[in-house]
Write a protein that binds this DNA or RNA. Structure first.
Length: 259
DNA sequence: AGGTATGTTAATTG
DNA sequence: GCAATTAACATACC
C-alpha cells in the first residue's frame, strides 16, 4: 500500500480506533524497526491509548503518548490490516498491536522495504526527512513553486522532497489525465499546464481515496487499469512503456504528445 | 527461468 | 555541486 491514497485509506481506518488502549505489542521481525528494539517499542506503546493520527505524503503517524508517535512507512508492499484478535494473522506479519476491545492491527510487508519507528514529533520528522508539502494539502501556487523548474515532470512529481505522496503509478495517472508527456521538462510547462497538473493531481488522488485506493475499482478510463505495454488506451491509441529514473512509465502517446 | 513490481537510499556517472 | 542513472534491499508473480 505504497502511495498517498493507500496511506490515506489506512489513516481513516486508524482514525476509527482513536481512544482505544493498546494491550499487547508483538514484534515478529525486529529489522522492520528503525532506532528502537522490540522491547523499546513494547514499553513505549503497551498500555497507551491512541490519541491522534496524521499522514504526510506516504508516511503515517499514530500518537500514543504526549511526545510519542509510531511512524510507519509501507515501502512497496507494506500494509496495516485491521483484524480481531481471533482472526488468522496474514503472512509476512512483522508487528502486531492488540487493543482492549479485542481488535488487532497487523503490520505486514512481504518485501520488507517498509519501516516502523518511534518519533517525538511528526513535524520534526517531516523536516528531517526533507519532505515537501503533502500533495493534498497545498494550493495551486504552492504546488507550482514546489514542483520547481528542473528536471522532467514525472520525476518532479515523484520527488518526495518537492511534493510528498505521489509514486510511480499515480504520477503516470496524473500525467495521462493532464495530457502531458512524462518526459516533458518542468521548465517547459506552461502556466496553464501547471494549473492543469494541480487540478488533475487532486482529482486523481481523491478519486483513488474514494475507491479505497483499490486499483481495480478505479474508473476504466484511468490508465492505471491498463498498465501494460501495447494495451488499448481507454481513450484511443495504445499504451506505451518507457523507463524514467529506473521506473517503468506507462503513458498514451496519442494523448500525451512529446514536446 | 528471467523479467517485473506501488519505494528509498547510497553510490556512481556525467 | 547538481542532476540523472544504477544498484541494492527481499519476495511474489507471470
Amino acid at each position: 500500500m505504497p502511495e498517498l491514497p493507500d496511506v490515506e485509506v489506512a489513516r481513516r481506518r486508524v482514525a476509527r480506533d482513536l481512544g482505544e488502549r493498546i494491550t499487547r505489542v508483538e514484534v515478529n521481525t525486529p529489522r522492520v524497526l528503525i532506532g528502537t528494539k522490540p522491547a523499546g517499542l513494547r514499553s513505549a506503546l503497551a498500555g497507551k491509548t491512541l490519541r491522534a493520527v496524521r499522514r504526510h505524503g506516504k508516511h503515517l503517524f499514530v500518537q500514543a503518548g504526549k511526545d510519542q508517535w509510531l511512524a510507519l512507512h509501507f515501502g512497496m508492499t507494506g500494509n496495516l490490516v485491521h483484524l480481531t484478535t481471533r482472526a488468522p494473522v496474514p503472512g509476512h506479519t512483522h508487528l502486531t498491536l492488540d487493543f482492549a476491545d479485542e481488535t488487532r492491527w497487523v503490520y505486514s510487508d512481504p518485501r520488507l522495504f517498509g519501516r516502523v519507528r518511534l518519533i517525538d514529533d511528526p513535524e520534526e520528522f517531516i523536516a528531517a526527512k526533507r519532505l515537501g508539502p503533502d500533495a493534498l494539502d497545498l494550493d495551486a501556487r504552492v504546488f507550482s513553486d514546489a514542483l520547481g523548474r528542473r528536471g522532467i515532470v514525472k520525476s518532479a512529481l515523484m520527488d518526495q522532497s518537492r511534493i510528498a505522496g505521489i509514486g510511480n503509478v499515480y504520477s503516470d495517472e496524473i500525467l495521462y489525465q493532464a495530457g502531458i508527456h512524462p518526459q516533458t521538462r518542468v521548465s517547459a510547462l506552461t502556466p496553464a499546464q501547471r494549473q492543469s497538473l494541480y487540478r488533475t493531481m487532486r482529482s486523481v488522488l481523491r478519486a483513488a481515496i474514494a475507491r479505497g485506493a483499490d486499483p481495480d475499482r478505479l474508473p476504466d478510463d484511468f490508465i492505471t487499469r491498463h498498465r501494460h505495454d501495447g494495451e488499448r488506451c481507454p481513450r484511443g491509441g495504445r499504451v506505451a512503456r518507457l523507463s524514467i529514473g529506473g521506473r517503468s512509465t506507462y503513458y498514451c502517446p496519442a494523448r500525451q504528445p512529446r514536446v
